[in-house]
Computed example of a mutant assay.
Amino acid sequence: MHTTTTTRTLAITAVLTLGLTLAGCSTSNNSSDVSSSSSTTSAASAHNRQDVMFAQMMLPHHEQAVEMSDMLLAKGDGVDPDVAALAKQIKAEQSPEIKQLTSWLKAWGAPTESEHSGTGHVMSGMMSDSDMSDLNQASAKDAVKLYLEQMIKHHEGAVDMAKTEVDKGGNTDAVQMAKSIVSSQTEQITRMKDLLAAV
C-alpha cells in the first residue's frame, strides 16, 4: 500500500514537473516569437516627421506626373516615339511608388494630404491648373515640347525633395525610394533636355 502511494506521488510529481517544463518552454518560445515579431514590425514602421512629409508631398507630385504622361500619350501617333517611351517609363516607375507611399502613410496613421494642402503652399516643380490645361489642349507636336519643359521642372522639384529625404529621413525604405528617385529622375532630366533640344 505504502509503495503504491509513493509510486503514485512520484508519478504525479513527474507529470507536474514535465507539464511545468513544457509550459515554461512554450511560454519562453511564445514570448520570444512575439518579441521578434514586434521588433520586426517596429523596425519596418520606424519613421520621423521628414518621412511623413516626404510621402505626403511626393504622393501628389507622382500623381501629377502620371496625369501629365497620360495627357501626352492620349495625343496618339503625333507624339514623338522617344518622348512617348519616356512618358510610359515615368508611369511604370511612379505608379507602384504611389501605392507604396499611400501604404506607408496609412501604416504611420498619417493623412495622405500634407498640412500645407490648401494653404497656398506650392510644392517644388508642381504644375499649376493652367499648365495642366495648356498641356491637355495642345496639339500633339506642341504637347511634346510642353511636356518636356514641364516634366524637367517637375523632376527637378522631385529630386530636391528626395535629396532632403535622403539627408533627414528615418525610415530605411523611404530613404531607399528617395535614392532611387534621385538616380532615375536625374538621368531622365538629362534625356529630356536632349530631346527638348531636338524638338
Rank of each mutant, 00 (worst) to 15 (best):
W104L: 03
G78H: 09
D129I: 03
A143E: 04
M57E: 05
S124D: 14
L101N: 02
I90F: 03
H116S: 03
L101S: 03
D33V: 13
L73G: 02
A65N: 09
L105G: 04
D77Q: 12
S28D: 05
M53D: 03
K106I: 05
K141L: 05
A143V: 08
T102A: 07
C25V: 12
L86H: 03
D82G: 05
K106P: 02
M53C: 00
M53S: 10
S130E: 15
F54Y: 13
A110E: 15
A55F: 00
D70E: 11
L101F: 07
A107T: 15
K88V: 01
E97Y: 06
T40F: 01
A65V: 09
T119N: 12
A55V: 02
K145N: 08
Q100T: 12
A65M: 10
N29M: 09
S28M: 08
M126C: 03
T40R: 08
K91I: 13
L105W: 08
L135M: 07
M57V: 04
S128C: 04
H154V: 08
H47R: 09
P96S: 08
W108R: 08
S26H: 08
M71S: 10
K106M: 04
D33T: 14
S69W: 03
Y147M: 07
A87H: 04
M123Y: 07
M151A: 02
E115G: 09
A107W: 01
M132A: 13
E67N: 11
G120V: 11
V52L: 02
A44R: 10
E113G: 02
S35Q: 14
H61P: 04
E113Y: 00
F54D: 01
A107D: 14
H116Y: 01
S38Y: 10
L146H: 01
S32N: 15
L148V: 05
P81D: 12
A110L: 06
S117F: 00
D80H: 09
M151T: 14
W108N: 06
D129E: 15
S124M: 06
A44E: 12
S38M: 14
A65R: 06
H62Y: 12
A138I: 02
E63D: 12
G125D: 05
L135I: 04
L72I: 07
T112I: 10
